[in-house]
Amino acid sequence: MGQTTIQIEKAISLKEKPDVSTVKFGTVFTDYMFSSNYTPEHGWEEPAILPYQNLEISPAANGIHYGQSVFEGLKAYKNGDDVLLFRPDENFKRLNTSLERLAMPKINEEVSLNALYELIKLERDWVPEGPGQSLYIRPFVFADEAFLGVRSARTYQYNIILSPVAGYYGGQLDPTAIYVEDDFVRAVRGGVGDIKCAGNYAASILAQQKAAEMGYEQVLWLDGVEQKYVEEVGSMNIFFVRDNELITPKLNGSILSGITRKSLIELAEYKGYTVKEERIHIDELQAGLKDGSVTEIFGSGTAAVISPVGRMRIHGEDYVVNDNQVGPVAEDLYTHYTGIQYGHLDDPFGWIVRV
C-alpha cells in the first residue's frame, strides 16, 4: 500500500439511515467500506473504497484455521458540521503492533489514516448526532491464503467497516457487576494478551457466559501464572480509586495497552489527580473493599469510555462498591473526556482530528 491514490467505487443505491437509538451495537453497517489486499510481490495494493459487501474467501483461508486475525476499534463523533476522530493514529500504531506479533505484514499508518479520512468524508451523514451516539470504526486484517499449513500466510485482506452506535448508557452512567475469574486465565506474558487478536476474545467467552449465568455482566481476569494479580476486564482496562489516588494495573506484557486507558491517565494527571500504575494483588483489592479504602472501581474502553463498577465478586464473596452508585472520580473523568471527544470542551492534548 505504498501509493496514496484511493479508488472509490460508487454504490448504485444508498441505504436508509436507521434510528440509531434503536440499533443494537455492531448490527447495522454503512454504505461503504475500505479494502486492500496484500501479496508478497506487491505488498499492500489496490486500496479502494467500495460499497459495503460480503468478502470472498476460500474455505481453506489460513486465518480461519490458524487465527492470523487482528482488529482495532475507534469512533467518529458529530459536532455541528464537523466530524471528530479521537487519536486515530494511536489505533493504527497499535494495529501494527498486533500485526508484528502475529507475523503479519504491517500496514502503512499514514496511508491508513488518509484512507479513513476519505471513508469518513464519504459517510459523514452516517455519523449520528444524538447524545452519546457515534460511528464505530472497525479496521481488521486477516490471512486469506488458501493453505492448510501452520506458517505465516502469504496473502491478507485489510478492511475498514463502519457502524452507527447508540450511547452506551443511553445518556447516563450505569454501574455494572463484575465477577473475578478464579479458574480460567486470559493471557500470560510473552503471549498475545497485549494485542488485539481475535483469539483473545474467543478464549474469554466461556468465562463471560459463566459470569452472566451468575448475574454478572463482565469478567475481571487475574494474571495467568499465579492467578493473584489483577489484569483487565474482558473488553476494558480497570481503574481503582484508593485513598483518593487513581490506581491501575501496570502494563506487563499480558495486558492490552488501551488507548482510553492511556488517555484517561494523561487527563487525570492534567486535572491534578495522583495516578499510579502498580501490580495489584487481588487480596489487597479485597481488603480495600472491606476496609473502605477502595472507594471506586471503573473500567475504561472505546465502547463506554468509563464503565463504573457497582458490585464485584471476589473468591465467592460479593462487595458493593460506592453503594452501587457512580463515583465522583469516574463521573468527573467521564464528563471531561467525552466533552473533548465531542468537541464541547477544549482539547489541550491535540487528540482530536477534524474531518
Rank of each mutant, 00 (worst) to 15 (best):
A11C: 13
D243Y: 09
Y270N: 09
P249W: 04
W126Y: 03
L173F: 07
G316E: 01
R186W: 15
S36P: 05
V188K: 14
S235D: 00
K121T: 07
F142G: 00
Y117Q: 10
G253A: 06
Y156Q: 09
E277F: 01
G327T: 15
D81S: 15
Y273I: 05
I161R: 10
D31T: 02
D174W: 02
I160V: 10
S152N: 07
S300M: 03
T248I: 00
Y201K: 03
I64L: 15
V150L: 11
E109Y: 06
Y270C: 02
I120D: 04
M312W: 00
A211T: 05
G301E: 01
T30P: 14
Q286F: 02
E109P: 02
P105V: 06
A177H: 11
I12W: 11
I178D: 03
F298L: 04
L14E: 12
T4I: 02
Q208M: 14
R101T: 03
V23E: 05
D243G: 07
T295N: 04
E278G: 05
L220K: 10
K271A: 06
A11Y: 06
D183E: 13
E46F: 07
F147Q: 13
Y136K: 08
V294Y: 01
R311I: 00
Y179L: 04
E317A: 11
G299Y: 02
V111K: 09
L256C: 01
H336K: 14
K271E: 15
T176R: 09
E123R: 12
H315R: 14
S152C: 02
T155Y: 12
N252R: 00
Q7E: 10
D243V: 11
L333I: 12
I280R: 06
H315K: 15
K228R: 15
V188S: 14
T22W: 04
E45G: 08
G190C: 08
D223I: 12
V111G: 08
Y216I: 05
R94N: 02
R311P: 05
K290I: 13
V23I: 07
A207N: 04
D346M: 06
S58P: 15
T176P: 03
V230M: 14
N37Y: 10
T27D: 13
P51Q: 14
V275M: 08
L256P: 00
P51M: 15
V111Y: 03
Q133C: 13
Y179M: 07
V321L: 03
S21I: 03
A202V: 14
E100F: 13
A268F: 04
I265D: 01
G272H: 11
R186F: 15
H281L: 08
A48M: 10
G73P: 12
Y32E: 00
A177T: 15
